[in-house]
Design a protein around this nucleic acid. Sequence first.
DNA 1: GATGCAAAAGGGAGCGCTCCCACGGAAAAC
DNA 2: GTTTTCCGTGGGAGCGCTCCCTTTTGCATC
Lengths: 346, 346
Amino acid sequence: MTQQVSGQTFSERPRATVMEDVAARAGVSAMTVSRVLNTPEKVRPDTRARVLDAVRELGYRPNFAARSLVTGRSGALGVVSFDTTLYGPASTLHGIEQAARTHDYLVTIVNVTTLNRRSIAEAVNRLRFQSVDGVIIVAPHESAADGLHHLPPDLPAVVVGARESLPVPVAAVDQAAGAVRATRHLLSLGHDTVWHLSGPEDWIDASTRVEGWRSVLSAEGRQIPDPLRGDWSARSGFEAGRQLARDPEVTAIFAANDHMATGVLRALREAGRRVPQDVSVVGFDDVPEAPYLWPPLSTVRQNFTEVGRLAFRLLLERIDGRTATPHRMIEPELVVRESTGARQSG
Amino acid sequence: MTQQVSGQTFSERPRATVMEDVAARAGVSAMTVSRVLNTPEKVRPDTRARVLDAVRELGYRPNFAARSLVTGRSGALGVVSFDTTLYGPASTLHGIEQAARTHDYLVTIVNVTTLNRRSIAEAVNRLRFQSVDGVIIVAPHESAADGLHHLPPDLPAVVVGARESLPVPVAAVDQAAGAVRATRHLLSLGHDTVWHLSGPEDWIDASTRVEGWRSVLSAEGRQIPDPLRGDWSARSGFEAGRQLARDPEVTAIFAANDHMATGVLRALREAGRRVPQDVSVVGFDDVPEAPYLWPPLSTVRQNFTEVGRLAFRLLLERIDGRTATPHRMIEPELVVRESTGARQSG
DNA sequence: GATGCAAAAGGGAGCGCTCCCACGGAAAAC
DNA sequence: GTTTTCCGTGGGAGCGCTCCCTTTTGCATC
């Protein structure tokens, strides 16, 4: 009474070739095929060649789920990031992806719109559910700290751009050092002091840059003006710039990123203050447009791509169980262009 | 002589809780646990509650690989994209990710540095290897066409920003329409004709914008200057701008993107030509900084995020086997700011 | 109280792969 | 020539889940 002989049932689905098919074609066992794929050196060259031929002829692609079921590895890593539309996160992601690709890892991304314990946990869980081998969290906010302290201990993780020492490795650019360089550069041009337009409150990079800037002024015994606060956008830079333009004392401005600096440049110009003759402006990031603003913007270059690569390396160390470097900094670089100049007396 | 009783072996690995554990705890079979997770309505409420409690108490997370092995679905989709550092691709990716998230899909990304048949095939294969349920290919290059015509037929795919009718659905912004609007806007301000700074040769968007621009000039019987060619960068815009600034006939410039327009603005200013009094400039994209350039840049806004969402919707249709809309366009929008103005009689 | 019937729950196979172990045969040692 | 060694290969179990099919259960009906 068996009916499965019909042969018509399921004829719709062509059934992908599996390892057994390759084995049959090559005249070996499935085991040997598996070996050729994973530890080729343990298979005699001629057998290996035969198997490889069969693989090619049949267009065989190993089933990822099956492999990962038994190995417990997925070959994918997760990136939790805040708004990958921003230049920094986008470049970091790019660096991660690039490094991952050369190591045959795939990158799965989850964007978060807010950074707190709950949102981080949620994003990480989504990724775990897909059994990624590890996660990189791009969390430039102070408010992320709580979430980062409570990451699942059994999941290899690396954080990009966090502040304090965490239970996980951190890859970051030395923001303070960058701010120090920018500020010193302006002072060295003869300016009495440097005004600062900072990033939004919750951002670690913003406060670290404030600290760097302040430390230089304080060490040199200069007047420390209240920093203005922007939100990274050119718009906020423009608004702050209008305010600064009104004050004739202002001759040097350190904006916490290039987009805000862009807005500052426009505000200064509209107010009739020349850059750099009347006011010098330094940005931060070195976005690709920076050299082509008017005037070309002096800024602090941070190599986001390199940070991404570094983060991946640290994660790989974690995944492979090697002792991971706890915290690693990348040095930013001052790029002097034409938006900064010697203070004109008077 | 058995030694496995030692109990020490493998004690390192705590062994994650599996469905059977949950079943035991809830006093049901594994089958029922599976039902609670997948088709809860088929389980009596009290049983369901008991199972859910057990899940919670044990912190059970279903093994993704095992599930995907048997269902043949992974809940992940792949995005193949050209340089996600660029504003357009980054925003598109963001839109895709956003839409995917609300539908419980995860997004895995592969960047490609060149777009041709080989590189596309390679990227798609990497993704297939991870058994994604479908792929979205962001392929703004002419040279990608070949690769897009040879996608594996059994893998649901959607293309973003391709030109011609492909065997797969396409989501795109109507570039030609945008260029038409930009050009008409400039003509309506009284300019005799419009110079064009186009994007790099291989880019579909670049040539489509050229076509739109040319069609308007041609329809209106205007002189059609040779378009200059840039590479999307502010630098190339700057160089082209210097060239254009030399020609006093040039009173209206349509740059194929905002970054190039940024460079053009600088070049014009350095040459002493005022914007918009002497020369009007229109960009394309409406990057976030555009309103804060000096002067604020008139441009054509293309909603990349919306394109990403659309692409995801189309892909979902494919995955679910619904008839997919073949080609869908999103309308761009002209945004008039201060870089364009009426032609001053010269 | 017996019977019928739908709904709820379970048994067991199997998805495709890797890994432990066993085994055969050729090379090396006796 | 025989035994030992070792390399290359194969058999078979099992990873954790879903799904087909069967069994059990609860409950209305006669």
